[in-house]
Design a protein around this nucleic acid. Structure first.
Lengths: 331, 331
DNA sequence: GACCGCCTTGCAATCGTTTGCGTAATTTTA
DNA sequence: TAAAATTACGCAAACGATTGCAAGGCGGTC
């Protein structure tokens, strides 16, 4: 039914191998035959079958892109950037949603392994050891996780969180809280540690969580925050922060009058929420691009990929102060 | 390197064809051999190669999912639902972002065609005639577009827009505007027509656009709206509506005091914006699910797919009234 | 003018499965 | 218990490309 290399060969009166070469090694053909073949291919509307090609070459020209939750507005810009740069390199992207579940994530890697050249794990919830094991079978690149020997791009949330805490301390806050995210999130532990260290000796820190990083969880944690008597809170991400703000509002607690709130990610939502959310902006699109480039360069060449050096990129973050932070009451 | 059907055959002391059958037609094997094979496969960690399988069967078990703009919050919930239902049917999803460009969209269909069993076009910007032509070569399902003979799921925006206009008329508005979206969008022309028809003889309608459906375009159109002297506007989608609200705010025009604004889609943003946006809610997740199910049922069986009846689904919409609509000034 | 080497192209094996066909083994039937 | 019917499994040819090898043609060199 579909037009194959054989049809083109017949049309151009050459052997299939010549047709193949017209596409993959054009310089090895006499210009005349090359154009004859290409012309025939054009006439017939021939497109090489990536499936068949993959079988012999071992390269599918596909990438798996696994995220924790597509609906989390943190991911779409990253996916978009990743898809665009992949396409520019002549690669296609499988997208899969792991639903914040390590088991699903692992299964997804295994399921995709045979039909991709590598996979990028975004905000993986899998344990390091397991990732290392998986990456023996298939090239893996990480976003928001750092493991020696595995390509990764991370956001410098340490610096971001330090800046955020400094901001709060400067405003005069002395009783802080961290609304933490998923336990398996690398970013989460990074932020948690940084908050503790940065506040050390200057303010108290209550940690609440772990929480699923969505608005409902933020909403649910509001009461606890109100009871805790803290005057400022840093949340694992914008979703939690926004849910929290809504919850506090429902409780009659004023943001930022009674308590200040800071998020992380600077998703579209941060600008839209009222009060507009002070947050740590992370370069998601750049991360997407960097991840596929790192992966592709890791899989390039034909020596065993595991022996090649794995690139590691750290992207800068920055605090953007909006309306959800202010001095504590009575200051 | 990877373990193949041959390795399993050797391990289980049977022919490869038996291994193949152990997976694809287990009932045709003696229970004893079947378990022996399956056991061997398990020991070796064997996973059939979908690539090789695709070559012989002609079915890749992959679906292409093409959207106009991944970053538009309208799409992620749809993609997520589509991916989940596809996975439940043992299919994987290629995602591609057409950047609101018909040429890219067409190219994407062609590029993906050889490695998918069908593609879902979400909010296509391609002309009907071209879609019909493409769908001769590869099964296509449509979201937010209706073409005879092609499976499609559409949102009943006609009813939604009628309700929205009725709402505005009842509030007392007599000078309306429609901020239109992309010219090639089926939804856009549906809404445009409905607005004109519903207002006929009861209110004037100014149409502004076409516009790229994002916040910036909405922001840019604000001045024109202010000058037009209308008291209520329906926008093609939430993004435009929200950008418009921001633009009006900058101009000192009060929403909903001076002009009422209604959006379409009910993305997360609608609840978050201030004033909270009155909008038409459309069932995006259901659409994603329905689209892949329609496509899969369209591609099932082995007669020529073009001869099979194409399912068409219309999903209900509904107006949710929030804070961005009110009676016109002086009413 | 014979030999050598390069350039161009054809030949055929291969990638990992599936599947129609054939045959040996087993069960059913008479 | 022999013949017929059925079942279980092996054989080998596809699927659509890639690629190492070889052969033929050609020009250049001595």
């Amino acid at each position: 039914m579909a037009v194959t290399i054989k049809d083109v060969a017949k049309e151009a009166r050459v052997h299939m191998s010549t047709v193949s070469r017209a596409f993959s090694m054009p310089h090895r053909l006499r210009p005349e035959t090359r154009t004859r073949v290409l012309e025939a291919a054009r006439r017939l509307g021939y497109r090489p079958s990536r499936v068949a090609r993959a079988l012999t070459t071992g390269r599918t020209h596909n990438i798996g892109f696994i995220v924790a939750d597509i609906a989390n507005p943190f991911f779409p810009p990253m996916i978009k950037a990743a898809e665009h740069t992949a396409r520019a390199r002549d690669y296609h992207l499988f997208i899969a949603d792991a639903s914040e579940d390590p088991a699903i994530e692992t299964e997804l890697v295994d399921a995709l392994a045979k039909q991709v050249d590598g996979v990028v794990l975004c905000g993986p919830r899998i344990a390091n050891a397991k990732i290392e094991r998986l990456s023996e079978n298939i090239p893996i690149a990480l976003v928001n996780r750092k493991i020696a020997g595995i390509p990764s791009v991370t956001m410098d949330v340490v610096n971001g969180a330090e800046t955020a805490i400094a901001h709060l301390l400067e405003l005069g806050h002395r009783k802080l809280a961290y609304v933490s995210g998923p336990r398996q999130s690398w970013t989460n532990t990074q932020i948690g540690r940084t908050v503790a260290a940065a506040a050390e000796g200057r303010a108290s820190v209550t940690v609440l969580g772990p929480n699923t990083p969505n608005e409902n969880a933020g909403l649910a944690v509001a009461e606890e925050i109100a009871r805790a008597g803290v005057t400022a809170v840093l949340a694992y991400n914008d979703l939690l922060a926004i849910g929290l703000m809504e919850g506090l509002h429902n409780l009659g607690v004023d943001v930022p009058g009674d308590v200040s709130v800071i998020g992380v990610d600077d998703t579209v939502l941060a600008r839209l929420a009222r009060p507009r959310l002070t947050t740590i902006v992370v370069p998601t699109a750049e991360a997407g691009t960097a991840a596929v480039d790192l992966l592709l360069q890791y899989t390039a060449g034909d020596e065993d990929f595991a022996t090649r050096p794995a690139g590691q990129v750290s992207l800068p973050t920055q605090l953007v102060v909006r309306d959800s932070t202010a001095p504590p009451p009575g200051a």
